[in-house]
Design a binder for these strands. Structure first.
Lengths: 205, 205
DNA sequence: CACTGTATATTTCCAGTGTAAATATAGATG
DNA sequence: CATCTATATTTACACTGGAAATATACAGTG
């Protein structure tokens, strides 16, 4: 988006790095036009190549969208991680992760929708699975030591992670689909913390 | 799907009740073919009318899908309500509602996906809002009296409802998008109760 | 019954989509 | 240089949702 303008240092292939350019253009289109405006032809046109060029790199529309979803997960994880790293203390880190999760969703609604829709993304894709797991791991990390009634089960740690993920994901999705609007003043800023139980920690730090 | 075969008692209009027939055919197609196979032309063909017939009743594809979503919410609410009515005691009723929510989603994944996707359903539609609210009310009902640390806030009741809804909805969505598969043995039956905190009740019954 | 109005449904056409197959291009390799 | 191969284009096709004009048949009125 910023280099290979005038210098034209190297142009290894016909375009250079079409694969990345297509993904970036796709995300750009997604953020501006929304999902309905995201077509292979529109993405190709934005980069300035023929409408069948994406197929060489992604195989199909689904492959292209999956690649966009992967990039989305990378950004999602990075965004959360950034907030977590800036916080100190278990409680603050937990809150930062959860708030980051929701804030990313609300800031990039279309990308978030694409990332979590099996209709667009191919969850059998290895890279996507790995990228999604990286996002999950941020939540998993901050859930270590969280204390509640199900934490002592044999699979307590997994339950804790799934509980937090479900809570935060459901909240984000329901807000995005406008389901909370009627019961909320009017698109008012409502924080995930306001509906998160105040869990204790087994080993307070 | 079952009557007006031989008797042909009355045929008030050209078709009789095309609007309902289209919705039912749409749901049928949705369950069998999934969302990608759900086109206006396919629905119309299933009923045996021209491909522009749906437009007279729903205006557009979005209108048609919204109507399907409304029917979905009706069934969703009825399914949950059925489980709640069969249970006795606050705890059992809570569990029945939440389990019903998830079970409906897992049993009708495509319909559930459509119901909660702003891409397909028009959430400005009055009937849809009302139908969605009916589903929400089932959760709201069973959340009355639930005791936790945020229940004493001025908007405690609303927080409780949103918390439960987020938890159950997120769990359903994440399961549907296959996100839990890697951390779960293998599509194993995992119950929402296993990640639901054991809340108390203010006024145990 | 005949006449008219109106809701319902069809026909025809169009711009747009994803995809497949054949072809062209240009860097890499010998 | 010649050849190979990854990259990109051209062309064609089946399919989609939607617009507009037309046909159909019921409802209401004389």
């Amino acid at each position: 988006m910023n280099d290979n303008q005038l210098p034209k240092v190297t142009k290894p292939y016909h375009h250079g790095d079409l694969k990345n350019a297509l993904v970036l253009a796709g995300i750009d289109l997604l953020e501006t036009q929304g999902l309905p405006g995201l077509s292979l032809r529109a993405i190709a046109a934005a980069v300035g190549v023929s409408h069948t060029a994406p197929k060489n790199h992604f195989g199909s529309l689904r492959g292209m969208l999956t690649a966009i979803g992967i990039e989305g997960f990378h950004r999602h994880a990075a965004f959360m991680r950034q907030g977590v790293d800036a916080a100190s203390g278990q409680k603050a880190r937990q809150q930062a992760a959860m708030e980051g999760y929701v804030r990313f969703a609300l800031t990039h609604p279309h990308l978030f929708e694409l990332m979590f829709s099996p209709l667009y993304c191919d969850y059998a894709n290895t890279d996507l699975k790995q990228a999604a797991k990286a996002s999950y791991c941020v939540l998993a990390d901050i859930s270590v030591g969280l204390d509640w009634d199900k934490a002592d089960a044999p699979d307590g740690q997994r339950r804790t992670e799934m509980m937090l993920w479900s809570l935060v994901h459901g909240y984000a999705k329901l807000r995005l689909s406008g389901q909370f609007s009627p019961s909320t003043p009017a698109g008012a800023a409502f924080d995930i913390a306001e509906i998160t139980p105040d869990f204790g920690y087994k080993d307070p730090q």
